[in-house]
Each structure stands twice: as C-alpha cells, then as structure tokens.
Design a protein around this nucleic acid. Structure first.
Lengths: 350, 350
DNA sequence: TTGTATGCGTTATCAT
DNA sequence: ATGATAACGCATACAA
C-alpha cells in the first residue's frame, strides 16, 4: 500500500481505509487500554504506512481544551536569554521538565511589544513569566485567561499567580554579612543591576530607585542594606552604583574608574556574578590585591565563578526551571515555592 | 461592566452580550473591511472590557487550516544555537521576519529524538530545518505533510523541499586560493568541523569522511581541495584535521600541538571563525607570527572576526533567516536561493 | 452592512 | 472491545 502524497489525511479516512470506526482509531492513539494490543498495533502500523502523522492538533485541542504548549515569556531577546548563563540554566531545567511530559515550549521573547497584537494569546495551556515583572495590563490579561500562571524570580502583586524564587533578600544579607563583618573600616560599594531606568551606568541615590519593589535587584539591595545596618556601617561609607546591563565590558571600565578613587572601596557587593567577575578584571587591571585589599562577592554561581574563585550565592537554577514546569503542568501544588540558596565561600572573599 | 474571571469566554457569548451576530464579531477581529469602523471599534472595546482575549486559536485553526506557527528544527540544543554567533544571527533574522507577519516560531531543539513521539507533528504550518541534514525517515515524514519545508545550509537529496544556502564550495575555494597562492612552499592544514563521526579531534583520511555529501563541511572541503589542486599543491603538503565541536578551548589545545611540529603548516584553512580564532590564540601562545609565518583564513565572519582582524568569508546570516522565513510563509517563490558570499581580507591573511 | 447555516477533525459519552 | 453521535469554537459562503 503506497502513500498518496499531498492528500490531507484524516482520522476518519484512516478508519474507513482500515475498516474500523473513527473512535477505535482515536483510541489506538490516545487510550491504549481501550482495545486489544494487536488491533492497536495493526492500526498504528497502517496509519504509518498510509502516511498519517497522527491526530490533527487543532481539532484535538478544540475538543480537549489543551494544546500541549506552554508559553514562556522572556524579558529580553532570545539571544540574551541563551547567552546569559543564569537564564540559560533556568531554561534548560525548564525545557527538560516540559520535554519529559511531551509538552512544547513556545518562547515569547521581549514580550511586552509582541504580545499585544499577536494571535498567540490563546494558544498556551499555561504561562511562565521569567525574570522581570511585566506591565500590569499584560499580567492582568494573562491572569484573566484562567490558565496556570507561574512567575519566576518575582511575585505579582495581585491576582492568583504563583511564584518560584529564592529569598533574594536573605541571601544578599548573608553574603553582605560575610563580606563586610571581618573588615575593620569597611568602605562598601554596591554594584546593582537595573535599579533605575537610567541607561547610563552611574552612582545613584535612593530616590531614583525603580518603583518595582518586587524585582530581584530590589530584594538583593534590601538584603545588603539590612546587613550594613546591622553591622553599623555608616551611610557615607556606602556607595550604590547602577548598571543598566549585565554586560562585562561596560562594568569593567566603570569598575576601573571606581577602584581608582583615592578612598576606594574595600568591599564590593555585586548583584550578579558577571558584574563581580568584571570587577575582578578591573582590580587585576589596577593591580589591586583580592581579597587583601578588596573583598568581592557575587550572586548566582555561574560556572565561571568557580573557575575564578569568586565567593558567591549559589541558587538552584535548573531546579527552579523544573519546579516552574511542574507547577504549570499541575504536577506540583499550586503555591509559592521558595528555593534555598547557599553562600559559597571562595578566595575572592574568604 | 465588570469581567467575570474564570469563565471561559467565547465569540458566541460576546455576540450575545453585545447584541450582534457571531459573524459580525468574527469580522471585527479578522476582516475590518466588512463592517463600519465605529461598530468594529465598539465591539473590540466591549470584548476587551469583558475580558475576551480574541478567538480561540484551536477553533480558528481547525477552521482555516492554519495555526500561525512555524516549526524550526535545530540540530543542537537551544543553548548551543543561541550562544553560537552564527546560529544566533540566523535565528535573529528568521525571528524578525516571522514576527513581522505575526507568526510564531516553535523551536524544536535536537529534534531527532524529540520529534518521534511528540504530538507536535501536526502543529506548524511549515518547517525550517537548520544546519544539518536530518535522518531520512524524519525528513520524509515532514515532507509528507505537504507543508512548506525549507532547509537551510543543506539540500535534501529527495522530495520537494527548497533550500536557502550559500555556495560553500565556491567561497571556500576562493578563500583557499587567496590564502595559498602567495606562498612559495605551501604547507596547508585544513581545520574541519564534524567531517567524521569521530568524537575525538584528530587527523583524518579521506575514507573516513561522513557519507553526507551535502553537509556544509563537505562542501567547504571540496572548495579547499579544488583550490589546492588548481595551485598544484602536493597532497603530502596537505593535512586534514577534524574537530567534532565548534569549541574554542579544544581547538586551541589541538592547534598548539599541530603548530609545534617541526614541519609546521604555514597556511591554515579553517571551516569556521571560531576554529580560526582558536588557531590564532594557539599561534600567539607559541609566538608564531601571523601572517608572516602563518596565514589563517576563517569562515562565517562573526563579529569577533573583525575585532581580531581575521580574514574570512562573509555570509549574510540574518538575510538567510529572512529569506527562509519569507519562503516558508510563501512570500517568496518556492525555489532554492543561493546567497552570495564575500571574501573579507584582513590582517591574518592579507 | 449584517445574520444564518454548515462543517473543519477530533474526543467523549453512551450504547451495543 | 467496538461503533454511533454530539459537541468543541470558529470562519465563511450565501442570503437578506
């Protein structure tokens, strides 16, 4: 029996060709327990031979109400998300978990603009929003669809979504305590990420901070401050710097500037490992000894952090992805998950 | 009018609420010219207010036969494809073009395994297969669906798919001519990528070459050889090396070994810029002067190639993505497109 | 410009 | 174990 190329095959036609009813063919694909093993195999083989690639997804979805697709809303571009080691690991964990359930992921990059006009809106069975709070209007639209909605690394301030994250504040506080406590006369610089809407890197004051209380950076900042207050570090010994991008080159240049000042800092609290590594580069450029003259802590524990002996906060990135997937697929209870972090003490800040 | 969260809204219900017929609401979404501008806007506004996010995709797809999704089959993992500058640029061009038509891309990584059992099969309206020939059985399955099928950087040896690519052989030949011609006593090493199934890097003989005649690497190899024959370079002055991965670290170590030999090569023909850059690193490690003692050419023209003054073959990667998209969306004639390349002469091989 | 009727391909319920 | 039938939500030809 040869295949008839080009024809649009349907389950109904298969049934007729094979000489059974539509329901039986459908069962052969979806409910193996509803028919004899041999019949099922005969049907599957015939379909294969006839060139039928399985039930039409649109029709099946219309009937079952499920598409087998999870939408992943990303804050940045695809290339950023895959070249950044943090996002990369998260997406890897997420992808694996979805794969395991034979669910596909529809990546929706820089979703703010795209998601307005597109028809994507009703495709996914659920959503995972990664990394950065979306505009409220968009979040509301998503929530209103009544599908599982999981936010990662931030918490929506309303609605009934669920969040997977680490306790950034606590972890940052712990890191700062470790870094600052042993120093007799601490001069602390905090290197923050996207704390304001400024597009230039620079020193910032409190009042300039972004309104988004729930962002990762804000939580980490609060943690650092909590530690600094506890250790009674005077405010004028603390400077807060903002970097608009997690970009090593830029940070390195800026850090050289900061570390060249006469009263240069002796502790650097960095909100990401990339920033911290760039700071280490800058220190090396200037011949500043780490950790003797400068203690540096990072955040995230990307692979390079280990190679370069950076003290940092480890967070289970792949695990985060896995859990987010399991929640959205309803394999985990629909409630907030707070994953634990671990301070990894290495040479940059022993 | 407040929205009733949780309810599943349908176009029919909207019509009833608003007091028009289903068809009119449908037209408001899909055919602006079929009703008065004001009515259309009233309907859209009402739907928005009621929390209706637009027509259900499954139902619409079932009716129209289109899903608005293009499947992109990738040879490697997602993270590879986005961290590799070549793949990255291609996907960027592709993504932009699809976006422009409000079409989504479903990324199907390392598709060999996944694609067997998954339900994805019937979702996309068309396919783009990137970079590496798939198993024939899979290709046949795809072709049999009767949807537009575009292969990029290789040509399927059967069926009715269409291909977007550059003339790798011609470009490689040109590069080799330029590199080798000026050298009086050329000793040439070819650094190839995935020319055999070996997982270790190493020297290879002809008979070990992969059977896949159509792969990018094979075309480039033929191009190099064509040039070497024309220039009458003796076979024993040519060595052919294979690298299983486009991985800089590994290549650098291997290249150091090769360049340490007593009769070391004075021309390096590299099948990718990454490999070429690693070779430059190795030359620097050994204090070998480029281009005086060693001429190096790459392939692809990734951004770093310019920074490091690597002579290489430029190919229009984003353009390739754009064209592939346009073909699969039937905005371009359904026929092979061969894009032109350009040899960029820089310091590594003037 | 608007409304009516039909069917897209499938799955689930029920009956056999 | 298998078959008949009714939805699923929508777009479109056609009628008004």
């Amino acid at each position: 029996m040869e295949k008839t190329a080009g024809r649009k095959l349907t389950l109904k036609e298969m049934a007729e060709q094979i000489g059974v009813s539509k329901a039986t063919v459908s069962n052969a694909f979806n409910r193996p327990d509803q028919l004899s093993k041999q019949l099922r195999e005969r049907i599957l083989a015939q379909c294969e031979a006839l060139g039928y690639s399985g039930p039409n997804m649109s029709a099946r979805s219309l009937r079952t109400g499920k598409t087998g697709i999870i939408g992943v809303l990303l804050a940045d571009t695809l290339s950023f998300n895959f070249s950044d080691p943090v996002a990369n690991q998260f997406l890897e964990g997420l992808g694996n978990a979805l794969d395991k359930q034979h669910v596909n992921m529809l990546l929706l990059p820089s979703c703010e603009e795209n998601y307005q006009s597109s028809q994507v809106q009703t495709i996914p069975d659920g959503y995972i929003v990664y990394g950065q709070p979306l505009k409220e209007s968009l979040m509301r639209r998503l929530e209103h669809q009544g599908k599982p909605l999981v936010t990662v690394d931030f918490t929506a301030s309303f609605g009934q979504s669920v969040s997977v994250h680490v306790d950034n504040q606590k972890a940052a506080c712990e890191a700062a305590m470790h870094a600052v406590a042993p120093v007799e006369h601490p001069r602390v610089s905090i290197f923050g990420l996207r704390l304001t809407s400024a597009i230039q890197a620079g020193l910032i004051a409190d009042k300039e901070l972004f309104g988004i209380e729930e962002s990762i950076s804000r939580r980490r900042l609060e943690g650092y401050r909590e530690a600094l207050v506890r250790l009674k570090v005077k405010p004028d010994m603390i400077s807060l710097w903002n970097f608009p991008h997690n970009d090593q080159q830029q940070v390195r240049v800026m850090a050289r500037g900061i570390l060249s000042a006469p009263e240069r800092p002796n502790v650097l609290l960095c909100m990401s490992d990339k920033i911290a590594l760039a700071a280490l580069d800058a220190a090396r450029d200037l011949g500043i000894k780490v950790p003797q003259e400068l203690r540096v802590v990072g955040f995230d524990d990307i692979p390079e952090a280990m190679e370069r002996q950076l003290t940092t906060v480890h967070q289970p990135l792949r695990e985060k992805g896995r859990i987010a997937a399991d929640i959205v697929l309803q394999l985990q209870s629909f409630e907030d998950h707070v994953l634990s972090t671990e301070l990894l003490v290495r040479n940059s800040c022993p």
